[in-house]
Design a protein around this nucleic acid. Structure first.
Length: 721
RNA sequence: GGGCACUUAGCUCAGUGGUAGAGCGACUCGUUUACACCGAGUAGGUCGGGGGUUCGAUCCCCUCAGUGCCCACCA
């Protein structure tokens, strides 16, 4: 029997073939499992990978974890659905695509929107295919017949219905507020989409009439509408409520001095200029003093250049304007001093690192704290309640705390983006009466209020997270009522810890809103895959590991086992090549255990292995007890999402109990007529059981071995756990 | 500024109220017919410091030190 097995396991000989076998079997589709109707559903919706991103170890990790869960549940007899999909990833993809255009010396700002969209679409479709192939290589046993793309018409329809309902319920509103603006990509960004970096910039002490104030942004002075001081500040007490005369470089201007608690007395001179159009704090100050001071004056445009309101400085970029303004003020003796090394945090676009320009541009917002009109609590409060009541459990508890902390301070969510790659916002505006018309079918041609034909479509698209926040129910609803009723709510959402707020929070809120149910019972969060020195993998460091390269060298099973082996929930995972190699050795060990057993037992030994053989010797008893114990522990650990523990248990047992001890002991036992027949039975039994226990972790090699066993009718993938 | 973690063998990390674990690495021995991608064995940790609770703490509490993460952000 052993002749057909080479002394070394070669993953390349089997993996592709085995995956095809699984796909052909139809068992990835839960409805085609044996006795599907009698099985209790178990659902995981795959976090859709960016259709445009090349496969990285993060994908390998999520596939490994989710595939372990789903294979385990399938073997446990559940109607296990793992629904795959890919994400158009609006802003992310647009950034990548714009970079590509840049290389070709083109720009979206010189293109027609339709032309841009079509090119981006083709670009994404090409890459989408590569991503999906990668998932197959990783062994993902997901149901490809339900594969969904975030821009599928059925999904978009559901997203539109949600928006429409939210509009009617008063949960979305059009707000004219100050927001984060990236001048490179020319779109609004939510707070989550920006980052901070400490910079050293000059702090200018500038004379505003009798008051000297400090600022790092002298070029915004044309947008100033007041000077603010802390009301408790004795130094400026006499000026509060008074008007002072300021030289703006464009002439003299009267400005009011106001008192506001937000001003830090210890900063600079304790006085600040108020520029409501270009600073979030100043915007807030203006809102509190609307009756006293003029409103925002926009002096910077969407491209980051000064506007006509800046007079002779118009057209200059912000940095150029700053230089020029400082020079001119200096000439007029308006600069008292300059602190060259002022350290402060600068807000940047998280993608391109461009300095965020706070701008007032109308955007759509989702309210987080307003109660629903049907009497239910606000979106935020429904999510908080779900966690408190345990309807949704976030693993580990640490993340639950982080989640709740964030929820407490949550702000309304801006959901419109000024980008083209995404789902258009289904709204039209009447140019005559200003009416807002939600038009999800793109049919409206005249204003419902004043019948005017002068209507204009909203040029913006949704924040990707607004649509992906509906993913768990949208994917299932898109396939019809039956799928939704059978497979929703889902059991587990397994995803990266860094999108807890971006995605998980929104899914919980939107799911309660739209379906009245939690989207999933458990959230399992994984960390980042790092290199062996715990360094983040990045292109610039050159330490990025390509999963397909690893698979070429060591096989998918080795990669999967290495990833899961020392991974506790939520922790980052340092992955060294040594570890992957070690796991390849383990896979090979299993292969050779098989060779040994197959060469020593007979086909009939496999036919009666449904019940455990009786031990005849002490070592027999020990190994059979050990098997029972390890089976219990592995099961227990899998039930509790302790994948690394489960992997370590089975590893220990297979290598150090079965191989090192029992197989050695079996050699003399096989020579002895009294024990030989029973030992053969036990060996055959053990082999089958460990293949079952290992299958979720190392699906390829176990299935490959399973096929070599005599009297096998079924695929291992549906063998009973 | 607010919050949350972590500190265990040379390295990377698990783990538990009751004589400390894995992987990799190191050392010694072994040409045993499943595997040298192997086997047998050895060394190596007062589980960050200090204090407390307890019959007993690496595990619980307090405190100090170091590291990391999240959130907010001052012009």
């Amino acid at each position: 029997m052993v002749d057909q097995l080479s002394p070394q396991y070669n993953p390349k000989d089997t993996e592709e073939e085995i995956y095809k076998l699984w796909e052909k079997s139809g068992f990835f589709n839960p409805d085609k499992l044996p006795q599907a109707k009698h099985r209790q559903p178990y659902t995981i919706i795959m976090p859709p990978p960016n259709a445009n991103a090349p496969l990285h170890l993060g994908h390998a990790l999520f596939v490994t974890i989710e595939d372990i869960i789903i294979r385990y549940q399938r073997m446990r007899g559940r109607r296990a659905l793992w629904l795959p999909g890919t994400d158009h990833a609006g802003f992310e993809t647009q950034v990548v695509f714009e970079k590509k255009l840049e290389k070709e010396r083109r720009s979206r700002f010189q293109m027609q929107r339709e032309e841009f969209y079509k090119e981006a679409w083709d670009f994404v479709q090409r890459n989408k295919h590569i991503t999906e192939e990668g998932l197959r290589r990783l062994g993902a046993s997901c149901d490809w017949s339900r594969n969904t793309f975030t821009l599928d018409p059925e999904v978009v329809k559901i997203v539109y219905a949600t928006f429409k309902q939210m509009y009617e319920d008063g949960l979305v509103y059009r707000g004219n507020r100050i927001g984060n603006w990236c001048t490179k990509h020319q779109t609004a960004l939510s707070d989550l989409e920006t980052k901070y970096e400490e910079r050293e910039d000059p702090l200018y002490y500038i004379k505003y009439g009798p008051i000297t104030l400090a600022t790092v942004r002298p070029e915004t002075k044309f947008g100033d509408t007041a000077v603010a001081v802390n009301p408790a500040n004795k130094r400026y007490e006499k000026y509060i409520g008074q008007e002072i005369e300021v030289d703006t470089l464009l002439g003299k201007k009267k400005m009011k001095v106001i008192g506001d608690e937000a001003v830090d007395m210890a900063f600079g001179t304790g006085a600040v200029k108020v520029t409501p159009a270009h600073d979030a704090t100043d915007f807030d100050i203006w809102q509190r003093h609307q009756d006293e001071i003029p409103g925002p004056i926009q002096i910077i445009d969407r491209r980051g250049r000064l506007t006509e309101a800046a007079g002779l400085y118009a057209g200059l970029k912000v940095a150029e304007a700053r230089e020029k303004v400082v020079e001119d003020m200096s000439k007029r003796g308006l600069i008292e001093k300059i602190d060259q090394h002022y350290k402060h945090n600068v807000q940047l676009c998280y993608k391109c690192g461009t300095v965020i320009e706070p701008l007032i541009i109308p955007q759509w917002y989702v309210t987080m704290t307003k109660p629903l009109p049907d009497g239910r609590p606000s979106l935020r409060d429904m999510a908080v309640k779900a966690i408190n009541d345990g309807d949704v459990k976030i693993l580990t508890e640490r993340f639950e705390k982080i989640f709740m902390h964030w929820m407490e301070g949550i702000k309304d969510w801006p959901i419109s983006r000024q980008i083209w790659w995404g789902i258009p916002i289904p709204v039209k505006y009447c140019k005559d009466c200003g009416a807002i018309i939600v038009d999800t079918e793109n049919k409206v041609t005249s204003c419902k209020q004043c019948s005017s034909k002068h209507i204009e479509a909203d040029p913006d698209t949704f924040d990707t997270w607004f649509s992906s926040g509906q993913w768990p129910f949208a994917t299932l609803q898109a396939r019809g009522k039956k799928d939704f009723e059978t497979y929703f709510p889902t059991q587990v959402m397994e995803t990266a810890a860094d999108i807890l707020f971006f995605w998980v929070a929104r899914m919980i809120m939107l799911s309660y809103y739209r379906t009245g149910k939690e989207p999933f019972q458990y959230v399992y969060l994984h960390g980042l895959v790092r290199d062996k020195d715990r360094q983040k993998m990045s292109k610039s460091k050159g330490n990025v590991v390509d999963p397909l390269g690893v698979i070429e060298l060591y096989g998918t099973d080795a990669l999967r086992f290495a990833l899961i082996f020392s991974t506790a929930a939520g922790n980052d995972i340092p992955l060294a090549e040594d570890k992957i190699r070690g796991m390849k050795y383990f896979v090979n060990k299993l292969w050779n255990i098989t060779r040994y057993i197959l060469s020593n037992v007979e086909a009939k030994d496999f036919s009666k292995t449904n019940t455990a053989p009786q031990p005849k010797t002490d070592v027999d008893r020990e190994i059979l007890d050990g098997l029972t114990r390890v089976a219990e522990r592995v099961t227990d650990n899998l039930d509790n999402f302790m994948f690394h523990q489960a992997a370590q248990e089975i590893y220990q047992f297979v290598w150090h109990e079965l191989a090192d001890k029992y197989i050695e002991a079996s050699k003399p036992q096989l020579q002895d007529q009294a024990t030989a027949p029973n030992t053969r039975l036990i060996l055959a039994y053990l082999l089958q059981k460990i293949l079952i226990l290992l299958h979720p972790f190392t699906p390829f090699v176990t299935e490959a071995i399973w096929r070599k066993l005599p009297n096998r009718k079924n695929l291992l993938i549906v063998e009973k756990w």
